[in-house]
Design a protein around this nucleic acid. Structure first.
Lengths: 177, 177
DNA sequence: ACCTGAACACCGTTCAAGT
DNA sequence: ACCTGAACACCGTTCAAGT
């Protein structure tokens, strides 16, 4: 929620917020970046794939700890200091993996797309989205109990593993280009 | 935009809409599904990876032809008739690829996450998001002209290729499980 | 010069009042 | 019984009026 709601929680006039931020979006950007402050980059000593997974998983769980802001993180490019710091870590990992500069940027975009979507799913799925449950049941015919939960960290890890396979294949195929 | 706006365009009372749909979300779900009506599934004769790419790319471009509804498609599970039809096509492709039933459901979720995120990027990036441009520049040091455009179909295809690599690897590793 | 809060132009939805 | 539209409880933001 926002502006009036935040102002009420802060026990101040709604307009006082506009003294500090030009608009609602700027305020949410700032909060979003703050939510990523605690995410640690394992750094260049860690193997690139572990570093990559580490950053992405940590960013995901950090965002989920502030569910109110997760939707906004999911919707905007990471231009705050912490967002850029993590993007730099991912970029370094991908470069170390052997991708060309162009491939690094494309893969960075793909990864951010994936994390934000996984985040969005986790947020508006609660923990188990009844709607998703119905899709899965309709498709698979599996009993409900064994289905992977939408937006779960297991589900996130699975998709990330697919992408890591792709990155390795891409690096092997065109690394020097 | 919505309810009052739609009613104005329809030249009717805003409340008349509530005679046909219980709420705004139900209306948008219906419109979203309609937007996917024209997406054709190449069908089982087509090799699974081409079928998969075909469905996803077609769904993406169909959604982008109605930019007003793309954001909603990006935010909700595909439970309309056309959404389920496409999900069934994807499921069939993944099964043919050799994934286990559980892997099929997990991969389906991953793919939908990716498409919806790519869609969201394309929508709120216009065609070239100045914010994204800044991230990419900060990261890569490449001249702006050569950067892949955020939310472009080339960018979409690149990420999809990564995922297809992952699916093939997964099928080869654990197909019979 | 600074800050407050009334006011503007919205929104989705409810529900009493009309037919 | 059906439908309309006034009203409710919001929203982000502007801007005139106060100090």
């Amino acid at each position: 929620m926002s502006m009036r709601r935040i102002a009420a929680d802060l026990e101040c006039d709604p307009m006082a917020i506009y003294r500090h931020f030009p608009n609602r979006e700027a305020l949410l950007d700032a909060v979003a970046d703050l939510a990523l402050a605690g995410v640690v980059d394992p750094g260049p000593e860690t193997p690139w794939d572990q570093r990559l997974s580490g950053i992405l998983a940590a960013a995901r769980s950090a965002a989920l700890q502030h569910p109110g802001i997760a939707a906004h993180i999911a919707a905007r490019p990471p231009l705050g200091v912490h967002g850029l710091r993590l993007a730099a870590g991912i970029t370094a990992s991908l470069t170390e993996a052997g991708l060309s500069p162009t491939a690094v940027v494309q893969t960075l975009q793909t990864l951010i797309a994936y994390v934000t979507a996984a985040l969005a799913m986790a947020v508006n799925a609660g923990v188990r989205d009844e709607r998703w449950h119905r899709v899965s049941q309709a498709m698979s015919g599996l009993p409900g109990e064994t289905l992977p939960i939408v937006g779960s960290s297991e589900q996130f890890t699975y998709g990330l593993r697919l992408l890591l396979h792709g990155i390795r294949a891409e690096a092997a195929a065109g690394g020097s280009r």
